[in-house]
Amino acid sequence: MSNPTAESGASSYSGTVVAVNAVISVVVALGLVWVVNGFNVFYERLDRVSPTVEGGAIGSAFVKGNEMELLVFMVEAIHVIDVIAGLGILLIMFIHWGAFRRIAGRMRQPGDSRAVTDGGEAADEGGETQ
């Protein structure tokens, strides 16, 4: 291809670096999974039933977890973040939908076969032109 491209003169990534980093990434990912798999406990030691609440019966642990302030705050905070982010995304979504409609109005309409003059014909609204 004789055309110059956007890459002419621009830096790019070396194949060796890509390959080495890819191998390291896979090793790190598998290593992390190996580590968290060891983060375990023999099931019989977990939640041994003790008949009293003082003894740490299953029911008491259940309630204790539900009342951990840090965890309750963490989940409530992410609920709020979800709603704020959702509203923000909807705003940006409507902005783009509106912008796309306006830009589309400046393009040649489907089936419009009028010849374009050299350098393009001035459109009614000018497209994304200057």
């Binding site: 890459e7 400046r106 374009v116 000018g126 032109t129 200057q130």
Partner: peptide, 22 residues
């Protein structure tokens, strides 16, 4: 970008999107 040809038409003003058909 290594595969996208860059042809610059200096006489085109703006983006030239009005030349594209919807």
């Amino acid at each position: 970008r290594s595969m996208i040809p860059e042809d610059h038409e200096d006489d085109t003003e703006g983006t030239g999107i009005e030349q594209l058909e919807l």
